[in-house]
Design a protein around this nucleic acid. Structure first.
Length: 568
RNA sequence: UGGGGCGUUGUGUAAUGGCAGCACGACAGACUUUGGAUCUGUUUGUCUUGGUUCGAAUCCAGGCGCCCCAGCCA
């Protein structure tokens, strides 16, 4: 990975540097903490990049640790997908681990707390526990709550003798009790103002098959009783997480203090909110399952797989994340910022090609029939090293329907009767007329004459034209499918919409099958990125076959004419 | 309501006591063999009220606003 995205040191950099200076830590080790229950999306990438860059910038290590503490939700399938997506981002880890690797050691640590009288087995029902916490039923909005949060009520089982707790915990572990019948809780403070500290659950009983430990365990640790302990066991110095965990930090620290183990440090940052992007795993899953999108890699999704299929490069994503910065503010980043990063990257690296998406035949009446010339075209004006290529030119061409008007609106500079334009890298042509379907009035072909003295696009007499249009010669043209994408959602915050079913944009996908592309594009490999001149950046889809390319729109070029025209 | 967190332009982010800068967007212009590349310019901001100070986005005090938490999810 290059360092292009590094800008100002972030507040986390400063904290870490201070920890090193003060001697709190003598090295740096961070971790990526995915739960293997879904695919990575752009929101994860922010966290991934923070962990990655902190480790890298301080010469430290990065572990990839799967947080597989809930066998009811997690699957092996996602483990491989997450590794793959992480690698695609160019993020290198030094070690792969699983929370489940530490189940035995974690259990030993739990016994230690029980023996110290700091944890107990509670036989209350979930409802009793919730009530005892001194809170209102789940679903109650804080704003609707009129009474102050009351101190909790201690469980009747709270002061069980240590021996009894040890016995019950062992039997929970062996599977003697049904799911939900008992839990192990830390004994902290039922009157604590922070609800997280009111005797949090450490283990729950789950007779479930775990993707790595099978049937070995009948109890599984909660996040709070696993994550920090795993951090400690692995010698993670900085456990970087999103802001919502900030209220868990006192508990994170309490456990490590009571255990007298290595004290990792949790630092929180705000998660990425991107307008028009859906990040909720549950909602994404529903889109996939109900067929609103074609899969987790649908190019309209901001999953990593979706972005990859769409044609977005890892570098563009890194640049974007660097631009977004890293603070504790609650923010909404506009999609346009992301698109700008994508354009910037693609502009530098994408070879230019000509493609006609909505073809209209252009006949050059004075061009010799049967003649084919090879015109030289620049591959990338931004990159001289990209060289040139030959594009065949002939009497009959395809141009964009949009590049011809029989009755031009004001300030329209493209082709219309009597107007001269440049065919890119070819000749100046003057429109002489057009043919229409007598029934529909639809323009079926356009006629023009060319000036043989303008080969390459420049007139010896120095005359100028106001417009250059792209074209594809009928001779040699390859037919292509092009999939155009618009935003999937009609609202800026799809995760917050009350009714997710009403916010999808019915026009988010438009499939064009009769497109023509220059001969070079007949053979493409999936993932190949190009710019279709004057149109946008496109990426060859895995659905492509030899001679039958399929392209996905990554992002359009900025189009000031379209903007001008729409304003009227 | 208890606890926690956050307030710099339309959006995001710099500036840690010394000219409020940058990016995206918007607007205007230049240039152009991509009207779409490129370049230039313009516009709009320190939540509020006081205090300390020669000087405050920054320090102090009060107020206001927004976000998060009452899973045996993570």
């Amino acid at each position: 990975m290059d360092n292009a995205e590094i800008t100002t040191p972030t507040f986390i950099h400063k904290e870490v540097a201070e920890d090193l200076r003060s001697g709190r830590f003598t090295y740096v080790r961070t971790r990526l903490p995915p739960e293997p229950n879904g695919y990575l999306h752009i929101g994860h990438v922010k966290a991934w990049l923070i962990d990655y860059t902190i480790a890298r910038d301080f010469g430290g290590e990065l572990y990839l640790r799967f947080d597989d503490t809930n066998p009811a939700k997690e699957e092996t399938e996602f483990v491989e997908a997450i590794k793959e997506d992480t690698q695609w981002m160019g993020i290198e880890w030094t070690k792969v681990t699983f929370a489940s690797d530490y189940f035995d050691q974690l259990y030993e640590w739990a016994l230690r707390l029980v023996k110290k009288g700091l944890a107990y087995v509670d036989d209350q029902t979930p409802e009793e526990m919730s009530a005892g916490r001194g809170t209102l039923p789940r679903g109650t909005k804080w704003s609707e709550t009129e009474v102050a949060v009351q101190p909790g009520v201690e469980s009747p089982y709270r002061n069980r003798p240590v021996e009894e707790n040890l016995d019950l915990l062992e039997r929970m572990k062996r599977g003697e009790f049904p799911d939900g019948s008992r839990v192990l809780r830390a004994k902290i403070d039922m009157a604590h103002p922070n609800l997280v500290m009111r005797d949090p659950v450490m283990y729950r009983i789950m007779h479930a098959h775990h993707h790595r430990t099978g049937k070995k365990w009948c109890i599984y640790p909660m996040y709070d009783w696993s994550h920090g302990q795993n951090d400690s066991m692995e010698g993670i110095t900085h456990s970087l997480c999103s802001h919502e965990y900030i209220i868990h930090r006192p508990l994170y620290e309490w456990f490590l203090e009571q255990l007298d183990e290595f004290r990792s440090r949790q630092i929180e940052f705000s998660r990425l909110n991107l307008t028009y992007a859906m990040m909720s795993k549950r909602r994404l899953r529903k889109l996939v399952e109900t067929g609103v999108v074609r899969g987790w890699d649908d190019p309209r999704l901001t999953t990593l797989r979706g972005l990859r299929r769409r044609g977005v490069s890892p570098q563009a994503i890194r640049t974007f994340i660097a631009q977004v910065g890293e603070t504790r503010n609650d923010t909404w980043v506009e999609m346009s910022v992301f698109e700008a990063s994508v354009r910037d990257d693609l502009n530098k690296h994408s070879p230019r090609r000509m493609a006609v998406l909505r073809p209209l035949k252009l006949v050059i009446d004075n061009y010799p029939a049967g003649q084919i010339e090879e015109m030289e075209a620049v591959n990338n004006p931004e990159d001289p090293d990209a060289g040139t290529r030959k594009v065949p030119f002939s009497k009959v061409l395809y141009i964009e329907r949009d590049d011809f008007r029989d009755e031009p609106p004001p300030k329209y500079h493209r082709l219309f009767p009597g107007n001269e334009v440049r065919l890119r890298y070819a000749y100046l042509v003057t429109c002489t007329g057009f043919a229409q379907d007598p029934e529909t009035g639809e323009v079926t072909e356009v006629h023009c004459t060319y000036d043989p003295a303008t080969r390459g696009g420049n007139a010896p007499d120095g005359r100028k034209v106001k417009s250059t249009i792209h074209w594809v010669s009928v001779a040699g043209a390859a037919q292509a499918e092009v999939r155009l994408y618009d935003r999937l959602f009609t609202v800026e915050q799809p995760d917050a919409a009350a009714d997710p079913d009403t916010i999808t944009n019915p026009d988010s996908l438009e499939v064009l099958t009769g497109c023509f592309v220059e001969p070079l594009l007949a053979q493409v490999t999936a993932g190949e990125r190009v710019q279709f001149e004057r149109n946008g950046y496109f990426c060859a889809d895995p659905d492509s076959a030899p001679g039958k390319p399929v392209f996905n729109l990554t992002v359009t070029l900025k189009d000031s004419w379209a903007k001008f025209e729409h304003q009227k």
